[in-house]
Simulated scan of single mutants.
Amino acid sequence: MAGLNVSIAFFFLVVGVCQALRRLSKRLLPPGAYGCLARELAGSLQLCMSCLELRMLVEIGPWGGGFGPDVVLTLLFLLFVVHGASFDGASANPTVSLQEFLLLESNLPATAAALLAQGVGMGMGWAVTKLYWSWELTQFHLIQNLIASECSSSIRTSTHHATFVEGTCSFLFHLVHLKLRQSHQMYRVPALAMTVTFLSHTAGPFTGAFFNPALAIATTFHCSGSSFWDYMQVYWLGPLAGMLAALLLYQGNLPRLFQKNLLYSQKTKYKIPKARVAAHVEGDEPRGRRKGGKSNSEPRA
């Protein structure tokens, strides 16, 4: 359990450092630069370092530490609750940033800056975590250093099946995210954390269940066993297709590309009562026809 305690202390340290980075950047940078650069970089750094350490526990913990998957799943849920509460609106996920762009919630320069910050944050997270592992503070880290150069791909099924799995995970995640994005943080954060935990437990044996292209690049792209194009198909095309499918199902269209609703008919928000319509039509009739139905133009006797 000593190794697990060191990993938990590492999680607290990562969250604390990234939170300090967010607060410092918020004071020094203008809101635009903070929102699309510093906030995304800090969130991606925090997510990458936490997920790399957690993945190490998943691979080594059951036989090196004697704890089961229930411990790892509990840690995963708690970590994503902390991430959701501390990210300050950052997504740390390219598909979420592209979704905001398609929903007209972000312009092209801000989206490009967010994607760049996410890539830099993930790269920094990978480098810092590798340095932390090299200190070999626990037996877990010693074993991790021994097997790091011979890591294997997270794709443990056919490429087409893996693409479908990652696309389905992305579809479900984005559907929940779209449904809850206007909800209070008290309800949104645990619901998203539960969704991520469930998807990771279900799809993890097949692909690792990343449904985050930037995180997949930092975690598994350098491992042998799959080609670069296999990785791109599974961890980029799959999540992007899942995001687009979820957006079309929820929204009915892609506002950035076209306004016409393809799935749902548009109905008038306000309805006029039939009695009022009938009265309006009757009031438009010529005055001569209101009395006895005779017109004033008839010849007099």
Rank of each mutant, 00 (worst) to 15 (best):
A42S: 09
R27I: 06
R39V: 00
G35R: 14
Q19M: 13
Q19T: 15
E53R: 01
L57Q: 11
L28M: 07
R27P: 05
A33T: 12
L45Q: 03
A33G: 12
P69V: 12
L37R: 10
L47E: 01
M49I: 07
V58G: 10
P69K: 13
C36P: 02
R22E: 06
E59R: 13
Q46S: 15
L54A: 09
R55G: 15
L21V: 08
Q19H: 13
D70N: 13
L57P: 01
P62V: 05
R55Q: 14
P31T: 05
C51I: 15
C18M: 03
R22G: 01
Y34G: 00
L52S: 05
A33C: 06
M49R: 11
Q19A: 13
G64W: 08
S44K: 09
C48M: 15
A42W: 00
L57Y: 06
C51A: 14
L54I: 08
C48N: 13
P31W: 05
G65S: 14
G16D: 01
A20R: 04
G43K: 06
E59W: 09
C51V: 15
R23G: 04
L52H: 03
L37D: 03
C18I: 02
G68M: 09
A38E: 02
G68I: 07
G61W: 00
G65L: 11
L37H: 02
F67K: 06
P30E: 04
L24V: 07
F67H: 05
L52M: 13
Q19P: 04
P30M: 08
W63M: 12
A38S: 10
C48K: 03
G16R: 01
M56P: 05
G68L: 08
G61A: 09
D70M: 15
W63I: 09
V17E: 00
L45N: 00
I60G: 08
E40H: 07
M56Q: 11
A20F: 11
L52R: 00
G16Q: 00
L57F: 08
L21Y: 06
L57N: 04
L29D: 00
L45R: 05
R27M: 09
C36L: 06
Y34T: 04
A33Y: 04
R39D: 04
S50I: 12
L37M: 12
F67C: 07
G68E: 10
M56Y: 05
P30R: 11
R22W: 03
S50Y: 08
R23L: 14
C48G: 11
L28Q: 12
C51W: 05
S25L: 04
L37P: 00
G16C: 06
A38G: 03
L28V: 15
G61D: 05
I60K: 08
E40K: 09
E53A: 12
L28A: 12
